[in-house]
Write a protein that binds this DNA or RNA. Structure first.
Lengths: 332, 332
DNA sequence: TGCCTTTCTGTAAGCGCTTACACAACTGAT
DNA sequence: ATCAGTTGTGTAAGCGCTTACAGAAAGGCA
């Protein structure tokens, strides 16, 4: 930064405190004095240093967000909602992806040093570091994670919608099911979805893992599954990406969806809508999730609230062609 | 921040300069002294303040990125590539979306105060502000924008691939074309695509605008177009989202793609691959774009280079079912 | 005119860290 | 033992900004 507040003060013939007051409106400044200051600011094209302001104020006016990675539309949509609200609240957004990164501790610590609060996806920050951030009284909002003492959590509803999905599939007459994309951790989103469908389908459904929740891994696992002698009538997938992989496998093996095999997803990402057949899925209010997280974090940062909230946003069963024929087909 | 370097120094019985040297490895420190310092750091759980470090060093160790918005997978993929390389280079990433925002000047200025350099998509930052950032010697890399003096630009190739696409469509035997999603600005990416196809197809193709480059607007424009008496044989779309909209319109009007109408896109986003028929498109190396931008910016920030570069990354024609039948169908 | 109140302004002390420079201590060679 | 060179350490000056507090100036009223 070239120009400092000292040069502005010199040019305007006032003290730096007066420059600060004139620019920030934090105290009385005579109209004539203000004019002199603003004139000097314009002539010198002065912009206050973000660093100086933050250090002196003791606040960053920025929010952090930690996610596994951006691959997959789910995270993007949440980020979009988050960034929009953060910006409205006058905060910058600093992002960090942790997947495949070494030194996650250092990365998160560095991030924490730049922001006034953090939104964290699931378990992307190690638990010991979470404990330390809590100890440091860093405002935290967790998304897609089971309730955690001392921090806000925010997630989409899984169990009820999973049950509704399972019941809908029973209504189509299917009797043999596979849950593709077995949960990795107890209590996370996918585990809740699994528990939900299993509570309805019981022993009629078994879980098959995919190493990751991606199209490619979903495709591989589905191809193996569909080549086996005892094929399910319907595959309930952990998420839309795995479901898209299952659709590809079915297509390749010449299985007609939904006539020979039904497939469902979760999330309602763009590609789910444009696949053919279009995927039946559960719509997650992803942008709303991000927006709500940013608002919750604001409350914690400003001290408007200091007791943790645990929010669950409703999800919605979206019927499309992939699970079977419906009397009145979805328009889009 | 609770613990400062002064408390560490007091606990270790050394000066703050020694603490700094021991932690940063910037000068000689006796082994015994280093141990004392590290012990104090551990006991007090000291983390250096990012603000203090940045102010004293005169550098942020962070990169900024300005984009219109995150809606649409293109920007996300670029961001992903950017963030990955930035992190490898030890930098945080601060994001800003400008679409629909008031006070863009202030937002960009604030962002500039937090980072060592900026990557900017196209024209998302007003030209007068760009000029000011250049004057301030803020390192800048522009993506998807015509070459600009004094700053790096980086874009994907448009014209050659557009010509290859047009020639491929001619090879299918089509003779009446529409370019859906007319360029908004001369010289931008879509304009180059339009110029490319027009240089091959001449008066056989006309441009039809869509208000925005989104699925919804593409759908509306395509529906209007396909209802008119003189229907094109092939629609060349500005990008994949508009093309997905055109596919929806064709489906709704009962037009078989590609038998009755061919459709092509641009970008090769996920949904383009999963649509049915799968979209013929031009693959943009979006992650590579982001990664290269981060590297170029690093060179500018570190002073490894001070003359602007203008890079063009190659794109690739991806043949799928939407433009017609090919002797050997694409596997996926 | 004098007193009181309000408005305005400047000084100094931080916020947390880095590091140039001066000096001390140590080591090795003569 | 002395000298020269190297290693190690502390002090002080910043980096850029905010603001509490003290004092000055201005205005209004008796």
């Amino acid at each position: 930064m070239d120009v400092t507040i000292y040069e502005v003060a010199r040019r305007a013939g006032v003290s730096i405190a007066t420059v600060s007051r004139a620019l920030r409106g934090t105290g009385p400044v005579a109209p004539k004095t203000r004019e002199k200051v603003l004139k000097a600011v314009e002539e010198l094209r002065f912009t206050p240093s973000r660093l100086g302001v933050s250090l002196a104020e003791g606040r960053h006016a920025a929010n952090g967000i930690v996610f596994p990675n951006l691959a997959g539309p789910y995270y993007t949509e949440v980020l979009l909602g988050y960034e929009e609200v953060a910006s409205e609240l006058g905060r910058s957004v600093v992002i960090l992806s942790t997947k495949g990164r070494s030194r996650v501790h250092d990365l998160v610590k560095d991030l924490a040093g730049r922001v006034d609060g953090l939104m964290v996806f699931g378990h992307t920050v190690p638990d010991d570091l979470v404990a330390e951030l809590v100890r440091m009284r860093m405002p935290l909002v967790f998304v897609s994670r089971e309730p955690l003492p001392g921090a806000d959590t925010l997630r989409s509803e899984n169990t009820t919608s999973a049950r509704a999905l399972a019941e809908h599939l029973l209504g189509h007459g299917y009797r043999r099911f596979t849950f593709l994309g077995a949960p990795i951790a107890t209590g996370d989103d996918v585990d809740e979805r699994w528990q939900g469908v299993r509570s309805v389908l019981g022993t009629a459904i078994e879980a098959v893992p995919t190493e990751h929740y991606t199209v490619e891994y979903g495709y591989q696992a589905a191809k193996t599954l569909l080549r086996a002698p005892a094929r399910p009538e319907a595959i309930v997938c952990s998420d839309d990406e795995v479901a898209l992989g299952a659709l590809l496998a079915a297509e390749e093996l010449g299985l007609a969806v939904p006539d020979e095999l039904a497939v469902t997803g979760w999330d309602d990402i763009m590609a789910a809508r444009h696949a053919r057949p279009a995927l039946t899925t559960i719509r997650q209010p992803m942008r709303e999730l991000g927006a709500r997280a940013a608002r919750a974090l604001d409350e914690l940062i400003t001290g408007a609230r200091d007791t943790p909230n645990h929010l669950v946003l409703t999800t919605e069963l979206v019927l499309r062609a992939s699970c079977g024929h419906h009397p009145q087909e979805e328009p889009k």
